[in-house]
Design a protein around this nucleic acid. Structure first.
Lengths: 277, 277
DNA sequence: TATACTAATGACTAATCGGTCATTTGTCAA
DNA sequence: TTGACAAATGACCGATTAGTCATTAGTATA
């Protein structure tokens, strides 16, 4: 398990230096100080590595945003917190940001394209949720346009973090963008992205958490888990999917048992979505 | 010369389908219906092809924007014209947009990275010029932030054009973004990108048109030009660089002789810059 | 028709790719 | 020390790559 981590880290370095296609398995194993064979003990193929990496690095990012957005609600600060957490992530993980937000080699691999666009859709949902909480029904017509503006701000300003290692004032940036967001939200009158347009421009993505996918996720993790409480929680939740019996409180508790472990953040996140918690 | 054009077109198709590294010279020549040897008669290496492509496709884009921005000034419509021309370009050339704005394989090749960032800097200059004309000194502190917002709008909304072929109302989009730009320009009070910060986040780029580079550009084109007026114009401009003699009007006229020919748009553009016209 | 020249070809090379697998190394309990 | 098992190795494979070059096809002049 540690070996996988090492390979992913070193691969990320190389991908951000040279790109995915241009980086060979040889180079990755050399930087790791392991043999080529050892690589294939951890990952079946080079593609499997990059799929794992996308999951690993983007899950963190999405979960961070979602936690900020659904966390304790303070209208005055939520936008600032939102932008701060995003750019803090860009600052801390500029290598993965460079690879996953800019490298669209992935566009050529259909599976990865769907994965990445699914994560992006997840982020869009979080932003929309935030806008609904912040501006209530003041923002009916222009909701999606404001979301696109926020995404635009992110993309545009992220470049500064990705391509330079200057010390930057995150607080000031967050304030500046929060102000812009408020201005846009309150003053925009001409929408472009209408409610009818949304389904057409939405990227192909797994709309909801599929039952089978979730079951498979549980099965994968049950076999590797050694901690008895976590394994039992996984078992019970798996049974609950196939045969609902327990109350919401119990299910939430089981999910929280998993959420403690950073490795289970994602499974907790999608489980909560599946059970509507 | 036509062969080069053919190769660039087909290569663009393949790059936008599969990415640069994943596309082989073999595939390009197959799609062109020519032999592998013929490819190497037009381009010395695969890298030279992609460098030529960047020049060819980005030059057009930059020149378009610059012409709109420096064209007849009507405060009411300039922003709308600006956005319309940009998204029209994204619509018409979604393949090259996909390749050059999203494929950052190029980031790994230093020469290309510099080229692309130089073109981006060129675009930034055009936007700043437009903002200065539009808002005069109302926009001192927040000029660069507004520019970043505009770039953000472009990046965010461009996705819709790049990844879907829906019929979209360009006029409505341009109006919507023009409104947003005005709102941001008039209401933003908290800057992030200050005048001092600019040189640090500016990408490495050829700041001004270098004399030697321009001379070389002229020499390359003089030998291939058959039309006597164009060749003489090139000759005279080349002499003018080394030994200034003529008045601005004459120089401008010579440049206009070249500008008629689409193939000389770029040389006209950089010459005008060099002679401050 | 013969000659001279350029344009175009595709078999070829050396290098590198992702991936495999017989073999070696390391680590236990007995 | 031995035997059993897992972890790790790197030589090796077939496929593919960018790039070369001796050869051929096509064309214009004499």
């Amino acid at each position: 398990m540690l070996k996988k981590q090492l390979i992913m880290e070193k691969a990320l370095e190389l991908f951000s230096e040279q790109g995915f296609e241009a980086t060979s398995v040889q180079q990755i194993t050399e930087r790791c100080g392991i043999s080529k064979g050892a690589f294939y003990l951890s990952f079946k193929t080079k593609d499997e590595l990059v799929i794992s990496m996308v999951d690993h690095y983007l899950q963190k990012f999405i979960i961070d945003i979602d936690q900020v957005v659904r966390g304790a609600y303070n209208k005055e600060t939520i936008l600032i917190e939102f932008y701060k957490s995003i750019f803090q992530a860009f600052k801390d993980h500029s290598a993965s940001a460079r690879v996953f937000f800019n490298e669209k080699v992935f566009l050529t691999k259909k599976e990865l394209f769907h994965k990445i666009t699914a994560y992006e859709a997840e982020m869009s949902k979080s932003i929309i949720y935030m806008l609904e909480q912040l501006y209530k029904d003041k923002l009916q017509e222009t909701k999606y346009d404001v979301m696109y503006c926020i995404k635009g701000f992110m993309k545009s300003y992220a470049e500064i973090f990705i391509f330079s290692d200057m010390p930057l004032d995150l607080e000031q940036l967050a304030k500046s963008l929060a102000e812009k967001t408020n201005i846009i939200a309150y003053h925009t009158t001409i929408p472009f992205i209408t409610e009818e347009l949304v389904p057409f421009i939405a990227k192909p993505c797994e709309q909801d958490v599929s039952k089978d996918a979730l079951l498979q996720l549980f099965e994968q993790n049950i076999v590797n888990e050694e901690d008895s409480i976590k394994r039992e929680s996984l078992e019970l939740l798996k049974q609950e999917i196939e045969n609902p019996t327990y109350s919401t409180a119990i299910i939430k508790g089981l999910i929280e048992n998993l959420r403690i472990d950073p490795a289970y953040h994602w499974i907790a996140y999608v489980s909560a979505k599946y059970f509507n918690i």
